[in-house]
Design a protein around this nucleic acid. Sequence first.
RNA 1: GGAAGGGUAGCUCAACUGGUAGAGCAGUCGACCGAUAAUCGGCUGGUUACGGGUUCGAACCCCGUCCCUUCUACCA
Length: 947
Amino acid sequence: MSTDYKATLNLPVTEFPMRGNLANREPAQLEKWDQQDIYGQIIKARKEQGAPRFILHDGPPYANGNIHHGHILNKVLKDFVVKHRSMAGFLAEYVPGWDCHGLPIEHQVDKELGKKKHDMSKVEVRQACREYAEKYVGIQRDEFKRMMIFGDWENPYKTMSYQYEAATVRELGRFFEKGIAYRGLKPVHWDWASRTALAEAEVEYDAHTTEHVYVKFAFDEAPSELTDAAGGLPIFAVIWTTTPWTLPANLAIALNPDLNYQLVKNGDEVYIIAEGLREAFLEACRIEGAEVVHNFEGRLLVGELGEGKGLNAQHPFIDRKSVLLPADYVTTEQGTGCVHTAPGHGQEDFHLGQEHGLDVVNPVDFRGCFIEEQVPQWGGMHVFKANPLIQEHLAEIGALLNKVGDKITIDRYPHGWRSKQPVIFRATTQWFIAMEPESAGLNEGFQLRQEVLNEIDNVEWVPSWGKDRIVGMVENRPDWCISRQRSWGVPITVFHCRKCGEALASKDITFHVADLVEEHGADVWFAREPADLVPAGTTCKCGAGPDSFEKETDILDVWFDSGTSWSAVLEAMLDWGTVADLYLEGSDQHRGWFQSSIMCGVGTRGHSPYKTCLTHGFVMDESGRKYSKSSKNYEPPQRMIDQMGAEILRLWVSAVDYRGDITLSKEILKRVTDAYRKIRNTFRFLLGNLSDFDPSQDMVPYGEMLEVDKWLLHRVQDVVGRCGKAFDEYQFHTVFHSFVQLATVDLSNVHMDVSKDRLYCEGLKSLERRSGQTAYWLTLEALVRAIAPILTFTSEEVWEFLPKNDGMPESVHLADYPTDLSAWKDDELAARWDQLLAVRSEVQKALEEVRVPKKEKKPGQIGSSQEAKVAIVATGATLQLLQDYSDDLAMLLIVSEAEVIDGAPNGELVDVAVEVATGEKCPRCWNFWIVPNSGEECCPRCTRVLG
RNA sequence: GGAAGGGUAGCUCAACUGGUAGAGCAGUCGACCGAUAAUCGGCUGGUUACGGGUUCGAACCCCGUCCCUUCUACCA
């Protein structure tokens, strides 16, 4: 070849790197964004326009530990929303937050402090907790920023900030005002060794060996059906328990209405036992020769669930009735089918008691010892010490059916995490929010449950089943226990009068304390005397002054903290009102934040704090189990970011349907990375062909563009429109898939492949080339904006390389989301091209059949499609279409010659005949041409261009 | 145990809400060597978790089973 024709071509030129090298280059871009205050600029621009506000209110992650994959999923989804809404013309400020109070932090600090804690005041311990939380806020903030999430990271909200704490206290005050916060008893895990209530997370399960007793309760109110069957012999209900010490608190015996019970005659006594447990009972009590004298259903004695018949048995050693109640949790797995019920010592017992209006008897003090006045026999004695004595006593009075000394080992008995001692269930005073006014002791008042359910109906739930889920939970939940026996949190700002026992829980006092909290932090509650915390002149009803007041020592449940974030953040901190457009969290928050927030919102302001509530699933590993450190191939997110870059993880979040659980695995990340490369290379090719393009000078008007370019623009407007809609509907995976599809098929496989000849070989400023460049510039400019919320880094990078037109902002994130591209819509053109592309596919198949590798190739055989000449046999509309496009066919098929023949094809659409192209190969464009004379080296087109 | 969600090619998603299960990627074979740690083409993947049922027709509707996930209740 005498001339280096390659140098005469317009090959792609760009500095845009082929490899993303994301992990290394993202930090520099972050730095740059920081310097130009990109987030600030975005917000400023929208404010200046007076753009409408879109509030995505951030649910606060817990300020403990590094972020994990779930955090990334959640925060990146939020970022998609915020970035898109922002580009779509809204003022979408994102104020991230952290949940800072609560047990896990106090727990960690406990561990770190060790014994030192005992010498520290509450305020000092709280200070240590504050520092701990602050440390992790800093760590997590850096990790979130690394994910390229835009927001006001310098001014986040923290539930431990003074202003926030004050707002939480005020909402509590509003509940007091409403009258639905009340004090009541509730059994909790009680660690008698460390004299403290335990949260669920502080309970460990371990084996525990203890006395167990079968106890008979005389039942002389038995209906005649039973007394007749017993033939006048005394009838006893027999219970079984592994906690004899709870017998002094026994108030009821639960039976299942649906179970079959029997009267079992043993000598001159008759026992009531569930049929399925009879054998086991007789064996345990070494009773022989017993006989069944009657069968009946439980409902004979207890009626139906939720009702009861009010029949009583007699407590064996206390002068008190024990009422028979229906309960569906009574089973025939163990015991007797008659379940000892002590509402002060068990959850189920408590709820059953509540349902039937039983008292909550708790004769055990904080040390785990019986209270003298209530249980004189064993007063002052520890309940576990009393167990064998109670067993003996039962034997002495003839109420014990098994033997003294009988013991049983319970495999999973709760123990204190610290003391390692077996815990007890003990009713303690707690604060509650009443779901119905009745439970607060009011005859009428605020129906919180019903009001919340009404408001749930006004919220848009995404996905829609979220509504069913939360409705079910709200319908069934018990009163909200808002008190915790802890130090690290917001105090329940109530005073107790030592003189008369009255609790001073009022809005006025609470708001007064809130003002102090706002100024000094909640520590003020723990540091000051009551007299310095109440408004001047405060007295109790009984006339006593602050000197007689004691502070409540309990703090608020952290769900109350975060449940008031709309007040603390949206209202108090930001002055945006009390309603967010969107809450977006994992589906576990139906029970958590979504619920506590709407309960607080409805409870104190009468409305939901969110208009739309969107949930996502959880991150799973390749086997569908939750993704945790125990998973195969587990990689901490920090390492993933360091290895492949945050952009890949963002793209992963966009690729999956987050409404269900989503999978994270090596293979998925590999696929996502492949998709990323494809997108990146597509962008790069477009940029490479725009190196000499100045949009302000070289743009070809739409009407003058080549049809193939109009087709591309049609496809672009279609996909971008679809992406915009998908963003609006929070369907990010639709964005991802349609975007990848466009890049791969429409752009890479079709348009770019087909246009290379024109772009490379035609004259630099020819219409053919400028038309293609115009299409590419418009495509790129639109696509890069469309994908910017997801590919935050790459879109910015492309934007930098994109030849600028007037009025284009310096950052893609300051640009608007592409909306009105309808000028490019041409459905008729698209329909024609669909047909043409179908023919193209047929031709490609035909070419494939005759294709031969270069080294084996003999004359008359074909390797590259440019070496071919095709003849297409078609009829009817297809024929007409192909004839109309005869000038474009060779280009479209990337062959040197294409001929259309009128005839009936054997195939469905067309028949294709392939031959070797005639003539000579043009050394410049590689197309074949028939040489008219030997004067020219190149084909006429190339000769013209070169000339 | 209860409530809710899910199970479509190796992977990620489709399937106009009952009408012959489609894409991209991966895999595989091949081309190109002027997007080159790129690019293009052909081909191969599914009894739609399983078992019943309703229907002319079911991935979609009904019943049952299994597995996974979240929340919740716990074992007296």
